[in-house]
Simulated scan of single mutants.
Amino acid sequence: MQLNDLKKILATSSQDEWIVDDETGSFTYKNDLNLRIERAEYDTYRNFDEPWATKHPDSSSKAVEYTVKYGSSFIERHTLVSVDGHRATLPIPKSINDLRVKPSEVNFARIVDMGNRVEEYLRRSNIVVNDYE
Rank of each mutant, 00 (worst) to 15 (best):
S13G: 09
N47C: 00
P91W: 05
T79C: 08
F48C: 01
E133I: 08
D5S: 10
R39N: 03
D22H: 07
P57I: 14
S95K: 03
T79D: 08
I19C: 07
T54W: 00
D49I: 00
R100V: 06
R87G: 02
G25M: 02
D21M: 01
A11R: 13
N31Y: 15
L3I: 08
G115I: 00
E105W: 05
A109Q: 02
G25S: 03
P93L: 11
N126Q: 14
L10R: 07
G71V: 06
D131H: 05
E119S: 08
S95M: 05
G115Y: 09
V101W: 12
V106Q: 12
A53K: 04
D43N: 14
L10K: 14
A40M: 09
R77L: 02
F74Q: 01
R39W: 03
K7S: 12
V20H: 03
H56T: 05
S14G: 12
E38M: 03
V20Y: 02
I96N: 10
V64S: 03
Y42I: 11
T79A: 00
R110K: 15
L99Q: 07
A63T: 01
D113Q: 08
D58Q: 11
H78F: 06
L35W: 06
V64W: 01
R77G: 03
S95N: 06
A11G: 11
K8W: 09
H86F: 15
Y66E: 02
H78P: 01
E133M: 08
G85L: 07
S13Y: 11
M1N: 06
I37W: 14
L35G: 09
G115P: 00
T28C: 13
V128R: 14
L35I: 14
S60T: 00
R87T: 10
M114E: 12
V101G: 10
A40V: 04
Y29R: 13
D43P: 00
R124M: 13
A109H: 10
V68E: 02
R117L: 11
S125D: 02
Y70H: 10
M1I: 05
W52H: 11
D32P: 14
D84N: 15
Y29M: 14
S72Y: 05
Y29E: 10
L6E: 06
I111N: 10
K8R: 15
Q15D: 08
S60Y: 02
V112P: 01
E50K: 02
I75E: 12
N31R: 15
A109N: 06
E65F: 08
S60V: 01
Y132G: 00
S125Y: 03
D58S: 07
V129K: 02
E119Y: 00
T67H: 04
K30D: 11
L99F: 08
T67L: 05
V106L: 14
L10H: 13
A88E: 04
K8Y: 13
V101P: 06
V20C: 10
L90W: 06
D32R: 11
V106E: 15
E133R: 12
K69N: 07
S73N: 13
R77V: 04
D58P: 00
A88N: 07
S125A: 14
F74W: 04
T67P: 01
K69G: 00
D84G: 05
N107S: 11
Y132T: 01
E105G: 04
D32G: 10
R123S: 12
I127T: 02
Q15I: 10
E38T: 12
E23L: 07
I9T: 12
V128T: 15
V118P: 09
M114S: 15
R110F: 05
L3W: 05
S61L: 02
E76N: 07
D113S: 10
T89K: 14
R46Y: 00
